[in-house]
Simulated assay, not measured.
Amino acid sequence: MIVADGGAYEESGPVVRPYAMVRGRTRSEGYSFDLVAFVVAAVETVGDRVGMQPEHRAILKLCHVPRPVGEVAARMNLPVGVVRVLLGDLFAARAIRVREPDGPDTRPSIRMIEEVLEGLRAL
């Protein structure tokens, strides 16, 4: 994209690319990805499946190790919304598995954490 700036032209970068990458979609169909949910590849590759793009393949390669959605977006250098849509495609194709963060009721209580901290200080 070219922008006029006082007679000089500058390239403004990939403004439309993420939008085009997900074909204008703003939400993943069938699944809402929490920013801290862990994603792991369930297959080696998506091969030549219809609709799969290089970004889908890159996410699969990246997610051979479980990673949170936010980290996937950061490593892909893409907006989180775009990554969520791409993850939705992979989820629909059964190419990834998702592990949501544990709920607050499964976390240790503040009292328990304080007791452990006191025990460590006593060492």
Results as ranks from 00 to 15, higher is better:
Pro14Lys: 10
Arg17Thr: 14
Arg17Gly: 08
Pro18Asp: 03
Tyr19Phe: 15
Gly24Thr: 11
Gly24Ile: 10
Gly24Met: 08
Gly24His: 07
Thr26Cys: 02
Thr26Trp: 07
Gly30Trp: 03
Tyr31Asn: 00
Ser32Asn: 13
Phe33Val: 10
Phe33Cys: 07
Phe33Asp: 07
Phe33Pro: 00
Asp34Leu: 11
Leu35Ala: 12
Val36Phe: 14
Val36His: 13
Ala37Val: 04
Ala37His: 07
Phe38Ile: 01
Phe38Lys: 14
Phe38Val: 10
Phe38Arg: 15
Val39Gly: 03
Ala41Cys: 09
Ala41Pro: 05
Ala41Phe: 01
Ala42Val: 05
Ala42Ile: 06
Val43Lys: 12
Glu44Ser: 15
Thr45Ile: 04
Gly47Asn: 11
Gly47Arg: 09
Asp48Arg: 14
Asp48Glu: 15
Val50Cys: 01
Gly51Asn: 12
Gly51Leu: 10
Gly51His: 10
Met52His: 05
Gln53Ala: 09
Pro54Phe: 01
Glu55Cys: 05
Arg57Gly: 12
Arg57Ser: 14
Arg57Pro: 00
Leu60Thr: 09
Lys61Gly: 13
Lys61Leu: 14
Lys61Ile: 09
Lys61Cys: 06
Leu62Lys: 06
Cys63Val: 15
Cys63Glu: 03
His64Trp: 10
His64Cys: 10
Pro68Asp: 12
Val69Gly: 07
Val69Gln: 01
Glu71Leu: 13
Val72Arg: 00
Val72His: 01
Val72Asn: 00
Ala73Phe: 03
Ala74Gln: 12
Arg75Lys: 14
Arg75Tyr: 00
Met76Gly: 04
Met76Thr: 02
Met76Leu: 13
Asn77Gly: 14
Leu78Gln: 14
Leu78Val: 05
Pro79Lys: 07
Val80Asp: 04
Val82Lys: 00
Val82Tyr: 00
Val85Gln: 04
Val85Tyr: 03
Val85Trp: 01
Leu86Arg: 03
Leu86Thr: 09
Leu87Ser: 11
Gly88Glu: 06
Asp89Tyr: 02
Asp89Thr: 06
Leu90Ser: 04
Leu90His: 02
